[in-house]
Design a protein around this nucleic acid. Structure first.
Lengths: 182, 182
DNA sequence: ACACCCATGTAACGGGTTACATGATTCA
DNA sequence: TGAATCATGTAACCCGTTACATGGGTGT
């Protein structure tokens, strides 16, 4: 975010709780510690604005080294995470404006291919729970029902994700062709 | 899972990586430490099966106190998490077979109401990035584009979740009426 | 022969969560 | 008057990740 414009820690937290709430959550305590360590790394600096009585306000901005380190990460090989939505795909994708068109499309295609492989591998597995303790008061079919309903959501959320990836790739490909034609 | 039947640590990890992969991920090292601490709490015990040479296999099962503690958690008041998919809704829902019909429907309704409130609060916010550094080589519109695409996924994933909640509640309500009619 | 599966763990590290601490301004 | 917002942080704790360590059985 500091690549786009300067922020205070409080600002960033607020953004992440409102407009940017699908990015990630963060606690203020963690925010301040992270900013501190990023200053120590040389990735960011800050200007101080004094406020009467209250602690001074620090407005952070990225340094040249910080931007370089960020780009190095952004352009580093992407490894899809085994588990749906756990890796850094969206962290990269949101800053895809700093990548070439081919790089973005490559990133999205890689993610799509991995998710499709995952679906192929797991979708048609038998998920019936075997050897359930018969001593239980609860009906095994009812146990299975809620496991199935929960899994159903997971699987359909994955499908929804794949559909979004497909739409997005198409859109980016069309755009790339339009630009090339000019 | 140990409420349903005994498992070894390795078993549980394997389940969580295959059939149960939408539940949660866990590393084996963490699994063994958690099982150890649960034994210390008195929630679970294990029987040992010897294997020549290799370390003995421990098959864990829940104790009466463990089951009691689990049910206490399952029936404790549910607090929806601010951030989509971060709380323990699904942890509870998957074991809803151990709850009364009204309790399950109440849980799902509470989650649905919270998500709807969230959508109402945030859906129509202006998300245009203001005060972007003009020194950047990257076009502000292009920065905005990828932020929007990312947000679009988040918002539609939330809608998808809400739709699943609605379908599921309907289904459970119908079932409850059928049972009552008998 | 080599890789993968079964099956157990410990140790160090890193980072997120919760609790604590301060204090001015704004709005109902 | 009291709650929420602005704005900063430290300390302790917990828990997840990564690296290390062991060793037999099974399949190609």
């Amino acid at each position: 975010m500091l690549n786009l414009k300067p922020h205070t820690g409080y600002d960033l937290k607020k953004y992440l709780d409102t407009e940017g709430r699908f990015m990630r959550g963060v606690h203020l305590s963690q925010m301040y510690r992270t900013l501190k360590s990023m200053v120590a790394e040389g990735w960011i600096t800050y200007d101080v604005e004094e406020r009467n009585g209250s602690p001074d306000m620090k407005r952070y901005r990225v340094t040249a080294e910080g931007k370089e380190a960020f780009l190095k990460w952004l352009k580093s090989p992407y490894e899809p995470s085994f588990r749906f939505m756990e890796g850094d795909f969206f962290d990269r994708f949101r800053f895809a404006s700093m990548l070439d068109r081919e790089e973005v499309i490559g990133l999205a295609r890689q993610e799509l291919a991995y998710r499709r492989g995952n679906i192929e591998k797991f979708r048609h597995r038998d998920r019936t729970l075997k050897g359930l303790e018969p001593t239980d008061i609860v009906d095994p079919d009812r146990i299975q029902l809620f496991f199935d309903l929960g899994h159903e959501y997971g699987a359909s959320a994955m499908d929804h994700y794949v559909a979004w990836l497909e739409r997005t790739i198409e859109r980016l490909e069309e755009e790339a062709q339009t630009v090339q034609a000019q």
